[in-house]
Design a protein around this nucleic acid. Sequence first.
DNA 1: GTCTATAGTCAGATAGAC
DNA 2: GTCTATCTGACTATAGAC
Lengths: 210, 210
Amino acid sequence: MEDTRDQIRAAALELFVRQGYEVTSLREIADRVGITKASLYYHYPSKQALLTSIVDPLVKGWERLGAEVVALPQTPEHKRFALDAYLDMMLGHRAIVTLLMRDAGAVLAVFAPTVDNVTATVRQVQRWLAGPEPSGPDRIRAQVALDTIGVAMSSGSLLPEVTEDDLRTTLLDAACAVLRLPPPAGGAIGAPVPTVPSAPPVAPGVGGRR
Amino acid sequence: MEDTRDQIRAAALELFVRQGYEVTSLREIADRVGITKASLYYHYPSKQALLTSIVDPLVKGWERLGAEVVALPQTPEHKRFALDAYLDMMLGHRAIVTLLMRDAGAVLAVFAPTVDNVTATVRQVQRWLAGPEPSGPDRIRAQVALDTIGVAMSSGSLLPEVTEDDLRTTLLDAACAVLRLPPPAGGAIGAPVPTVPSAPPVAPGVGGRR
DNA sequence: GTCTATAGTCAGATAGAC
DNA sequence: GTCTATCTGACTATAGAC
C-alpha cells in the first residue's frame, strides 16, 4: 500500500508546519497516522529522509522552472511571465512554502548536501532577472522580487479576508514594480493581470494554472 | 559582573543563528563562554528566557517605532520616512533578524504570550501604510513593503559583493515601489535616497543613523 | 558565581516476533 | 507491514557543595 507513506507525509507536514520540525517527534507523527514509530521506520529510514521527501516536490519544481526560465530571452514580458510562473508554483506548494518559511534553517540544514545546487539555480534566475551586466542594485532588486512572492504568501495571519485572486494579482504586480518592469500593454492600474502577454514560447507544463 | 550575562547572550545568538534555537544546547553555549551549564542557569532561569532576552531589543524597537509612526500623517513623505526608519532599525539588529528569519516558528512560539501585542503593532503599521479605507490589494502592498525590507537582509549568501549602502538604498526604493509611493522630489533613478525629504516632524530618537 | 552530580524525560533508532 | 521491546544518548533543569 503506497497509502501509508502518503498518510505519513501528510501528517508530518501538518505537524511540522504547526509545531516546527525539530520539536515534532516521530512518535507524534506515528500516533497521528495510527501506527507505531517502528512502523514509520519501515517507510522512512530517518526523520531527515521524511523531511526530504516532503520538501522535494518544491525543490524539484523550482529547479525545473529555473532551468526553463533562464533559457528565455530577457524581455520584460518574459520576466513578468517567469515571476507569474514562479508565483503559481509556490501557491501550488503552499504548505511546503509555509514550512520552509517557518523552519528555514532546519530545512536547509537537511538539504545541505543538495543545497548548493538549489542555491546555484536561484542565483541563475536572480541573474537572469537582473539582466545583462547587472549592477549591485539590479541584483538586489531581482532577489527582492523573488522574495516578495515567497514571503507574503505565508503572512496569512496578517492578511486575513484577502482573496486568493487579490493575493496572486497583487504579489505579481509588486514583484514587477520592484524590478521596474513596465506595466503590461493595456493593463490599467489595479486591473487583473493577463495570464501571459502574447504567450511567450515555453515548454509545456510551466506555469500552468491548477 | 554584568559581563558574563552579555557573553552568554552573544554566544547564544551566534550559535542560534548558525545551528538553530532548538538544536543548540545550553551545554554548547556554556562551553563556548567557558562556564558550566549550571552557572548559565544562575544568569538565565531557562532556555526560553535566554532567547527572550536576545530577541527583546528587536521587539521593543519595533513596538516603539510602530507607536510613533502610526501617529504621523499618512503622506508619501512620511511613509517613505517610516520605511527608512524601519529599515534602519532592522539593520541595527541584523543578527537578531537573521535568527528570526531562520527560526521564525521557534522564536514566535517562545514569544507566544507577547506575540499578540507585536502582531497588533504590525497590523497597525500595516494599516497606516495602506492608507485610509484600504482595499485588499492596498493591505497586501503594505505588508509586502514591510516584508521586503526584512527578507532581503538575510539573503546575504545570495547577495555577496553588495555594499551596505546599495542594500539600504535599494531596499527602501523597492519598498516604496511596492507601495507605489511617488519618487522623492528631485530624486533621479538610482540616486542615493536623501535621509528624509523635508524632515517630517517626529519624536527624536526615531530612525537615527548609528 | 561557579562548580559537580544527578534526577527525570524523551528523542531517534534497531532487533526480531508475528 | 506492523508490532513489542529495548538500547543509547542527549537534553533541560535542579540541589547543594565550594
